[in-house]
């Protein structure tokens, strides 16, 4: 069951989108998110759809991977669609069952919202498929770095350190959990059967060793960090410098053109 969790979905290949600066990618993701929400009509949303389709093609990530992500949130899409189908009372009534009226307005609204969710998910997937978790944490740290001017320097550093260590230890801890589970199963532990209380009780032999080993990891890691002159981030610099390239600026321009057309359509229609 644990091995199904894939941490980070990075898809290794070398596309224009992969090569973009991760900070730019995060910022543009936010911009696109905002404009997807700003779009009031189909015209605006269709422009965004066109834009996102082009990006997907540029990422060289197989389309089926995006569909896989959509599939996992399919229940949410269906749920919102159904609610909205019968929520709006505008337009021509198509048919009526009991108290539920299905109107053209309702259909329009349901399709509109479903499309919006789909676009949001796909844009999010573009970021995670084309950026390594490391680059993501790095970018978040740097994007947050202006916060240090308002006295949150320590916060920014600690947050970044936590993300780095979490990234590093998640695979280790998953592997360890699997090992401990197997070891207890070999001693006859029954993890698959029983009612909820029995199942929770059956987890104790796994959680206690896992907790103990996490504490050990933490203790030893702290010593190792101290041995490498770690001093709570005081005076720390980074080896990697992120530099913006022409493609980064260009992508901003393209993104803004598409996004602003949403506003234009909002005003015109």
């Amino acid at each position: 069951m644990l091995k199904d969790i894939t941490f980070g979905q990075y898809y290794r290949c070398n596309s224009i989108i992969h090569r973009l600066d991760p900070r730019i990618k995060i910022l543009l993701l936010i911009v696109v998110f905002i404009f997807i929400f700003l779009a009031q009509g189909f015209a605006g949303l269709l422009v965004m759809t066109l834009f996102i389709t082009i990006i997907i093609l540029l990422t060289k990530v197989p389309i089926k991977l995006f569909l896989k992500n959509l599939k996992s949130i399919l229940p949410i899409i269906i749920f919102t669609t159904l609610i909205n189908l019968f929520y709006s009372k505008d337009g021509i009534v198509l048919f009526e069952i009991w108290k539920l009226k299905l109107t053209t307005g309702g259909v329009e609204r349901a399709v509109f919202l479903a499309l919006r969710i789909i676009l949001l998910i796909i844009v999010g997937s573009v970021l995670t498929y084309t950026t390594t978790p490391n680059d993501l944490t790095d970018a978040i740290e740097r994007l947050l770095s202006p916060l240090k001017f308002i006295g949150l320097k320590r916060f920014v550093h600690v947050l970044a350190m936590m993300m780095t260590i979490a990234l590093r230890f998640i695979p280790t801890l998953i592997e360890e959990t699997e090992k401990i589970m197997n070891a207890q199963k070999a001693r006859g532990a029954n993890l698959e059967e029983g009612n909820i209380f029995e199942r929770i009780k059956a987890l104790i032999p796994i959680l206690i060793p896992l907790l103990i080993s996490s504490v050990r990891h933490a203790y030893e890691l702290a010593e190792a960090m101290e041995c490498r002159c770690y001093n709570g981030g005081e005076g720390r610099v980074r080896m990697k410098k992120l530099r913006l390239h022409i493609s980064d600026y260009l992508s901003c321009v393209v993104c803004l053109i598409f996004s602003s057309s949403v506003v234009v359509f909002n005003i015109l229609i």
Binding site: N134, T164, I165, R168, T172, H217, L221
Partner: peptide, 8 residues
């Protein structure tokens, strides 16, 4: 395992 800090 308990000495490596970064994931690269």
């Amino acid at each position: 395992d308990n000495q490596l800090i970064a994931s690269v």
